[in-house]
Every structure is written in C-alpha cells, then in structure tokens.
Design a protein around this nucleic acid. Sequence first.
DNA 1: GGTTATCCATACTGCATCGTATGGAAAGTG
DNA 2: CACTTTCCATACGATGCAGTATGGATAACC
Lengths: 192, 192
Amino acid sequence: MAALSKLEPKTRLSAADWEEAALEVLAENGVGAVAVESLARRLGVTKGSFYWHFATREALLQAALERWERSDEAELEAAIAAASDPRERLRELIRQVSHKHPSHAVFAALIKSIDQPLIRPLIERVSQRRLAFVTEAFHQAGFDAAAAANRARLAYSAYVGFVQLAQIGQPRMNHDEFEVYIRDFIGILIPQ
Amino acid sequence: MAALSKLEPKTRLSAADWEEAALEVLAENGVGAVAVESLARRLGVTKGSFYWHFATREALLQAALERWERSDEAELEAAIAAASDPRERLRELIRQVSHKHPSHAVFAALIKSIDQPLIRPLIERVSQRRLAFVTEAFHQAGFDAAAAANRARLAYSAYVGFVQLAQIGQPRMNHDEFEVYIRDFIGILIPQ
DNA sequence: GGTTATCCATACTGCATCGTATGGAAAGTG
DNA sequence: CACTTTCCATACGATGCAGTATGGATAACC
C-alpha cells in the first residue's frame, strides 16, 4: 500500500502507482472517491497521465481490486499455515483481524459499494473463501458440518458488522474493553 | 411505506409522498439513488414539483430519514413491550428481525452511506438505542454488565453484517437452513 | 363564478467528472 | 548526439445532476 504518498513530486508514475493510490483513497473515502482528476491532483499530475496508463476509470478500479484480492487471498493462506490446532487457528485469525489492518479499511469501503457490478462478484469470491476457511476450521474443531457452517456465518457476519460499526466508533470501547470483547468473542464462539 | 407507487398519475403530491418515495428508492438503490429528477420521473412529475415542496435535496433526505427513525424507534418500543422474560424478549427480537422487513432494507442502505453528515449521526442514534436495549436484555437475563455489553455487541454486529451479506445471498441458505441458523444463533448467544 | 393559493412544467445556469485530441518534455537507445 | 519511446499538460466536448426563474394549470374558497 506504499507510504501515504500525497503530492510527492517524485519522478514519473507507473500503472502500479495509480493502483496503489486508488486503493488508498478507496480505503479512506470509498469507491466513489476513486475519481480520475482527484487522483491526479493527489499524485501531482493531470489526467493526461492517467489516460496513458489506463483506458478508463473502470480499468483502474479493476486493476486495483485485483491487486487487493490477491493480497487478501495471500493473508488467508498465511492464516491457514499459522497454527496446526484448528481452535488456535481460529483464535489467531480473530486476533489478527481484530487488530486493524489497512486491508480491512478497503473491505469496509468495498462492502458499501456492493451494488456495483465490479465490486459485487469480488465481495462474493472473497467472502466465499473466508467463510469456507472459517467453516472448515470449526469443522476440524469438532462441530458437525451444519453447526460449523452456522458458527462461521455468525463469526463472519459479526466481523463484517463490526468493521462497519467501527467507523462510527459505535461499540464505544477503549483499548482494554476491546481486548475483553475479543476474549468474550472467542469464548462465546469457540467453547472450551 | 405505502404501496409500490410507480408512475401513478394519481392526483397532486404532498411532501409526505416525496418522503415515502425517497425511502422506497433509498431501500432499493441506496442513498445516492435519491435524486431529484429521478424521483420526479418515478412519481410522474418534474423537478418543478419537488422544489415547491422542498428547498433542497438534503431537506428531503432529512425529512425522510426522520420519518424512518421515528418508525424504527416505535418498533423497538414495541419489542420491549412484547415479552416479560428477558430471554424470551431477545429470542422474539431476533426472530422478528430475521424475517425481513422493509425497515431493514433502509438500514442496510443507510449504513453504506455512513460517511455522509446526515446519515452518520442517525446511525449512531439508532445503533445506540438498539445496543442499549439488547444490552439491558442480556443484563436482565443474568449476565453481568460487561458480559451483557459484549454479547450485545456481538449480536448487533452479527445483525449488521448479516444484513449486508444478505444482499449478495452470501450465506447461501434456503428457508430451512436459515431457520436452523437462527436457532443456532439464539442457542449460541442465549445459553440455557 | 371569480379570485387566490396551491401545485407543477419548461427552460435555463452551474458544476463535477469522464473521456478525447494533440502537442510537448523527459528518459532511454543506438 | 540524433531519434524513438514513454509519460504528461492543456484544451475541449459530452453527460448527469442540483438548483433557479418564471409562467401556467388546477383546485379551494368566498
């Protein structure tokens, strides 16, 4: 995601620079904020530059989203390799996810634009992968298929909801309260 | 929410007609879809009508949202009066919420526009009320204050996330699977 | 039935943004 | 050092939507 590169005169830009900048403003201000001229101003150039690298705004979005999807998939695979005990794997995943991460800001922004034809299938694929992973972990932890699926749904829904609510600081918590919340979260969903 | 009033030549319109139409398209296509000319077409009139009833698009949004907030508050108060046993009250609320309702479509749309200055405080107020209610119910059900708050956070986050995910039919479930999910949901969060 | 208040149509301005056309500057290449 | 490729600036057209100005139509009222 590079550093917060605002108005760096820098050198000349590559397509990857535009994609990363797009993901930054996406995380900060949503999909709608990924506008050509606005991005150009942020990067210290003009539209002329943009339309050399990309045919259209959608092409940039697509490229940026593919980039994010790959990184998200990689994170998940890393989580799979993390621990051998499925319970511990779940706990570790929850802890990882709960201590935020730029990737979750992107996800929170994306889910708000779930109607757009470019976003919807992406969210579907990503959620599918994540749900399958969590379901499998619960299954390996001893729950039967149906119970595991439901715990996974509950856990993933809670994650999605929390990411949304976090933006209004709604479950108003300080750091310690948050830690206790995560502990309870784990305790409720992963008994024993 | 009136009937699905599309392109009814009808008679002349009132401010309330615009507000209800605004809530309809809000639920269907999000806050961004609440556009003056588009709404006018939907109602079979032109912008001339709109700007007689409202000074600006924001004024319409504000009025429509106040309308929705009042109805949401009333629903919650009805849920409070429903059952005397707090556990049963929670179960009933979950069942009510899980069998959808036009009001939840509005909420799902609103949460996507949580950045807008008109929406954010509204979501804050509504979530505050709902969380307080659920927290209180868990508390009355025997959990201490901290545990009750965390169960409420988990339950409400799961609700928010589910409402979002439901739009992509992500937790791909048929009717029976859904009922089992709700049963498990209740069983996990409300033990005994 | 005439007058007034209510409601709406038409035509316009202003602004943001996507996309195009084209010429120019800087970096690489022989 | 000439020349080509790569990258960018400027200027323009087109579209969509908010908001204004103004006159006309219809219903309500005395």
